[in-house]
Design a protein around this nucleic acid. Sequence first.
DNA 1: GGCAACATGTAAGTAGTTACATGATTGC
DNA 2: GCAATCATGTAACTACTTACATGTTGCC
Lengths: 178, 178
Amino acid sequence: MNALGYALLGMLVRKPCSGYELTQLLEVFWQAKHSQVYPLLMKLEQDGLVTFVYVKQTGKPDKKIYSITDKGKALLAEWTRKSPAPPVIRDEFLAKVYSIWLTDKDTAQRLFHERMTAYEEKIAFRKEEIKKMKEEYGDEIESITSRHFGRYLLFCRKLKQEEEEIAWCRWVLGLLAK
Amino acid sequence: MNALGYALLGMLVRKPCSGYELTQLLEVFWQAKHSQVYPLLMKLEQDGLVTFVYVKQTGKPDKKIYSITDKGKALLAEWTRKSPAPPVIRDEFLAKVYSIWLTDKDTAQRLFHERMTAYEEKIAFRKEEIKKMKEEYGDEIESITSRHFGRYLLFCRKLKQEEEEIAWCRWVLGLLAK
DNA sequence: GGCAACATGTAAGTAGTTACATGATTGC
DNA sequence: GCAATCATGTAACTACTTACATGTTGCC
């Protein structure tokens, strides 16, 4: 089993979800397309780690709601205890920054402004998500006993990181203005 | 051409390097194994974007030093101007944090302590690299005219981010201690 | 009338990892 | 004697992306 498989189990232990929803929830720490998620869910189902039920909807397409099994939960708990592999970061923007001295100031400034705008949107979304979580789950969310604790921690981390990114962009734009 | 190819060109426009060295330099914004880098460099050479010379060494294996061509430089400059694809982050540790509520406090604390230790080492390395760059290239490094400007910006960003990671870990450990 | 969101899937291709292969030198 | 660093390469495999395929509702 690969890390994405465990990541999906980790989402399902929090609450039952459709493949579509999982793909979106995953965004905080892993990026995967639905074309990778759907076949993996089928494999997890074959391995007896998850089960699903069809849910009919009106006005929307029907969906499959997946839930984790005890076997899946046990496997996940075991995996969580092991030391994780080092993170993978592949950022095209940073690759462009590396050779920024090749371009003119205007292009450099444009690239950094675009980055800032993208991150400002992410921050707004992140803040709203944190607010929603606090409203829905209360103070309990800051305790390891809550099943939403992990997601909450990751959102707080992401928010801080995104704010840092903007501060860095501002610093660079300052250097470019000199 | 894929992003890794451009990333390699971006490194080579700063200074000529061996494949081995490129693999290490890449670490700031892209992680690639030598088994991916060597064949790509050959492909870049076939496309006339880089050239290489054999350098004989004593006490160490011989190496191939790659340099960028004018064609490669032109292609890179063109690519730099285009809006980058969104970053990819795949972090197994964060996947484990997501389901941290499944494990006991001791395991949770151990995971966070391990993360902190790993990041403290990275910070030490990063600080030394920044110091070296400042010594070698002086104040000029904070100007877009320096070919080391991009690398300097990325190291400063990474350092900040790694310090933030430690602050976040400390915050989580505080919550866990409650 | 077209696009976005909801919802699931497959096929073909590219990108990236793991393992194999070789070999000298330095330090523990 | 063993592991690490330097140095380059290939083969087999896995992971991931892009494109194709289908269909509804609601909004501009």
